[in-house]
């Protein structure tokens, strides 16, 4: 590692921007972090990947497979924006290390619609105005999908319980419940139905 010296780094883009500078040069390639090879199936497609031990599943999905539908809202297992299905069950993909995924099957929001046809949940989310800002929506959809896997005709209370790990700060919870009930065919007038 060569000694670092100070020099003016910035060219004049206007007064007041820069005083000194911290040049960084002569660096070696980054020290390799421990890596492992994993084989995973994502939305039906098999992938062989070399992953760093510290990478989470959501990082691999977003940064290495380009599947950015799963969002990072908190990166600490609180909000649910990164929810995916792992062998059919909903998990927070920020709280799963990629190296644990060897041989596992993952479904993300990108896999919900098949052959250009939206999933009934997606249709219901559109019709009943599920997403406001939409940042939590992928996670809400995947939690709903997992819920309907295990309970195809949930009540409103069961939907709330099944999706309570998915925070929506726009707080559009009524609409999400209504959407899931509509997709399940269990929407009744008094269970989240639109009054307006």
């Amino acid at each position: 590692m060569s000694k670092i010296s100070r020099r003016t780094f910035f060219e004049g883009t206007g007064a007041g921007i820069v005083a000194g500078a911290v040049p960084l040069r002569g660096q070696q390639a980054p020290a390799p972090a421990p890596r492992n090879t994993i084989q995973i199936t994502v939305n039906g497609v098999a992938h062989k990947l070399e992953v760093e031990d510290r990478w989470t599943l959501v990082e691999v999905l977003r940064d290495h497979l380009g599947l950015t539908g799963s969002k990072i809202g908190c990166d600490r297992g609180e909000c649910g924006a990164c929810t995916v299905l792992l062998d059919g069950k909903s998990v927070y993909s920020c709280s799963q290390l990629a190296v644990w995924m060897n041989g596992r099957s993952i479904e993300t929001v990108e896999g919900l619609s098949a052959n250009g046809r939206l999933d009934p949940l997606q249709e219901a989310f559109i019709q009943h105005d599920g997403p406001q800002c939409g940042f939590c929506t992928s996670g809400q959809l995947m939690s709903a999908k997992a819920l309907l896997h295990r309970n195809s005709h949930p009540t409103a209370e069961e939907v709330r319980a099944g999706m309570t790990g998915n925070i929506c700060r726009c707080s559009n919870y009524n609409r999400y419940v209504e959407s899931v009930l509509a997709a399940a065919g269990t929407l009744s007038a008094d269970a989240g139905g639109r009054k307006a």
């Binding site: 599947l67 539908g69 619609s113 939206l118 997606q122 599920g130 997403p131 939409g134 929506t137 959809l141």
Partner: peptide, 10 residues
């Protein structure tokens, strides 16, 4: 809405 429910909203 379609973009918002398919993960394709960037």
């Amino acid at each position: 809405a379609v973009k918002r429910v398919t993960g394709t909203a960037t």
